[in-house]
Design a protein around this nucleic acid. Sequence first.
DNA 1: TTGTAGGCGTTATCAT
DNA 2: ATGATAACGCCTACAA
Lengths: 347, 347
Amino acid sequence: MARGSGVSTATVSRVMRDGAGFSAQTRDRVLQVAAELGWIPSGSARGLASRRAGIVGLLFPDLGVGGPDSESPLYVDQVIRGAEQAATAAGDAVLIAATRGSSGRDLALSVSSKVDGLVVVARSLPQADLATLGRRLPVVVLSDRAGRLAEVDSVTVDNVGGMRALVDHLIEAHGYRDITFIAGPPRSPDSSQRFAGYQQAMRAAGLDAPKLPHAIGHFTEAGGARAARELLADRRPPEAIVCGNDQMAIGTLDVLTSLRLRVPRHVAVTGFDDLAAARHVRPHLTTVAQPMRDLGARAVRAVLARLDDPTAPRLESVLPTDLVVRRSCGCRPARRGAAGRSGRTAG
Amino acid sequence: MARGSGVSTATVSRVMRDGAGFSAQTRDRVLQVAAELGWIPSGSARGLASRRAGIVGLLFPDLGVGGPDSESPLYVDQVIRGAEQAATAAGDAVLIAATRGSSGRDLALSVSSKVDGLVVVARSLPQADLATLGRRLPVVVLSDRAGRLAEVDSVTVDNVGGMRALVDHLIEAHGYRDITFIAGPPRSPDSSQRFAGYQQAMRAAGLDAPKLPHAIGHFTEAGGARAARELLADRRPPEAIVCGNDQMAIGTLDVLTSLRLRVPRHVAVTGFDDLAAARHVRPHLTTVAQPMRDLGARAVRAVLARLDDPTAPRLESVLPTDLVVRRSCGCRPARRGAAGRSGRTAG
DNA sequence: TTGTAGGCGTTATCAT
DNA sequence: ATGATAACGCCTACAA
């Protein structure tokens, strides 16, 4: 009827949705009255009627459950930014929630009720729940091939190829043969894929590849430091220490410094992720860049696409990684301004 | 009626909301059927009927508009995490959206329709829009005293006291008198408050305080580097360079290194924020810690509180900051394990 | 171009 | 403890 102006709710609705079917005059009138009244359409009512909330959910893991220091993998921040960008560009919004320990299932249900689809970052949820959720609404898993088993779409990164390119570089450009690997959590898909890439590179060069990582660093700075300390207690330093991510590499660098071992002169060190910290740490960290923002953006787009076409074949997108050569592997610094990137990995 | 079990929608509703008024038997039955069907209540319908979406919105600025490199203040990530934690703890969820340039108003409206209340980070929105929004739903501004003018709640940080404590330290503990200030964007409230803190400390020590900052670094690493380069082109290095945030301090460190000036021997350098990078950079950065997560958490709680009691007096919360003394100011490193913190600033 | 009216899936109020 | 039944505020044919 009259939202204050003299038109029907239908007309107001048409105007507010940018649809067609009204005169410019009517539109101006409606818009003006709305502005005067500070009136905003109700998202809930709109969502109910159109069965589309205009919201995509993003679930990510919060490890170190509980305390104020609870922490998620650092790359999650970038994923969130990428997701936000893609969603906003599509006129949607993103809802975020961190699953903490066993409360994950309840949280997932609560979030599910508010969104049209879900992006689930690796290790946020047990696989069984993924499959269940996937039957109710579009679900895209990130950095986790569990999607395949749960039969939902997935967007991942070429961990194997990235790590392989990195280790190839250490072997070919620097001639290292004695290369130690510090892994992340045993059950992390990212970690095991990266280790596989390391094994492949070693074997391809005719070197012995261990069946298991030399140490476990849990993807944290402290964990990496602990792993490095243990490694070096046993034996003389290897030629290179390859870490499963940047945070562990940073912890390793600290330990080496305190042991008066110079990097890269005495030992080379590498990471994975290319966090901002990789450029701040000394020496600058040679690592593998993941397109973290793009990961988030693509996952959101995949959700939106699935909403449009529920029958499309399952998506299994693998994004390439980039080898980023800096000083910690033993390379000389590039000239100022040179990017220091190379070796884009195929998807 | 029968959602598959044999009870009315009313009963299902009661069970799903954890309310009372049903037998344990009925509850189990409803829950079981729901699980079997994979049924989840509709958030939209629920929101419409109860006029409560269970969602809090978070608006933050995305500067460097446009390109894939668009970037927000780094502390925003932490604010988001804190907001998520507080919201989840309260059974709500948080919706995030970055305002990019002039599209801010539309985005704000779109988000407003989907949420019960809004947290608005400084510089996301023109002040006029803040006031307008504030009339429609609870709005809490973050890091910006604009809240006062717009008559909405605000949560800020004691920028003045934090910077003052830092500069006091430089003057008293190190005896510096020639202290240069690199500021952020001219219209940033954070920046001008920090400059004011610097001025206060200088005057209190009987030193000359400039009316304007010696240089402007726009809160970015590149901007800080540029500012440092300009400063040092003119004159011999000052005893200390105080930067308005950590990112500019990091840029400044790079420039000093490339000019073969040692920090802190030749020049002391300090930051503000205590980003993770402050501990990675060499030398470790003396800075002022802001409780960024807490900032986000409190803002969300303020929104929720306002929802409960619309008539409560306006909230103007100022959180204390912590002086974090590391090596870049000239202090010797603390013993391992010592926190290196001191000087909590009053609110 | 505009209005009318049924329906979206809950919650909340009354009954029973 | 449970059921029936109006709202809730919008969208979407359908009609004019």
